[in-house]
Design a protein around this nucleic acid. Structure first.
Length: 217
DNA sequence: CTCCCGATAT
DNA sequence: ATATCAGGAG
């Protein structure tokens, strides 16, 4: 029983090699030109495709350039500007609250530490990990979204029920320098092949190392 | 645990 | 009709 530890380690190594081979250079697909834009896009991306977020932010970022712009307009106006991303009341309130906190506590800048990012309303570990990893090049954790949760479970990399538990398992299993790239690769993989509904296991390069009970042809 | 919520695919 | 989409707060 501690003879299958090396086997699990080799299985993980093959998964990481497979991800590198299949998704070299996978990165953030949320369009952004600054840390503020990335933070906004990531908050908007909750239960919404990144494709739609990018469509909305194309106009949004022309109108809202600084934290002041989100606070200045009436709440209803920002809600209308992001409506098609869903959850638009919560998202508008969070965007305005996050911008207000940045103005009041962080000099109007997007903070670059986990502790400060978590003080922003609408920001928990998933969003903070995206901003830290992509905008600031800091790997404080593993981004665990709906895709990473599903793929990690199917691959047998974590059986934890919560995103926090999955993140702990992945942080323990993966070398730190892989934390960021792993998330981006798995998100693309989950979107294109290891889909929620009808996974394309027949085309999956990781299939030999997958422990999923819900495989399809 | 529930609620928030529009858009799209099946 | 129903499931799902780069979640987070109460």
């Amino acid at each position: 029983m501690d003879r299958d530890r090396p086997e699990a380690q080799r299985r993980l190594d093959r998964i990481l090699r497979g991800l590198d081979a299949a998704y070299p250079g996978a990165g953030c697909t949320l369009r952004h030109g600054s840390a503020l834009e990335l933070l906004v896009a990531t908050i908007l991306s909750a239960q919404c495709t990144d494709e739609r977020v990018n469509r909305v932010t194309e106009e949004l970022f022309r109108k809202y350039r600084r934290p002041e712009d989100y606070v200045r307009v009436p709440a209803e106006e920002l809600e209308a500007d992001i409506r098609s991303t869903g959850f638009y009341r919560n998202k508008a309130r969070n965007l305005r609250g996050a911008c207000r906190t940045m103005l009041e506590s962080f000099g109007g800048a997007v903070p670059d530490t986990m502790e400060q990012l978590l003080q922003l309303p609408g920001v928990a570990r998933k969003t903070a990990n995206v901003v830290l990893g992509v905008a600031f090049g800091k790997a404080e954790g593993v981004v665990v979204d709906t895709h990473v949760s599903r793929v990690a479970r199917r691959l047998g990399l974590s059986g934890a029920p919560s995103a926090e538990g999955i993140e702990r398992d992945l942080m323990a299993a993966l070398p730190r320098e892989r934390w960021i790239s792993f998330s981006h690769q798995v998100i693309v993989h989950g979107r294109e092949l290891c889909r929620a509904r009808r996974p394309l296991c027949g085309r999956c390069p990781l299939e030999p190392d997958c422990r999923s009970e819900e495989k399809t042809i």
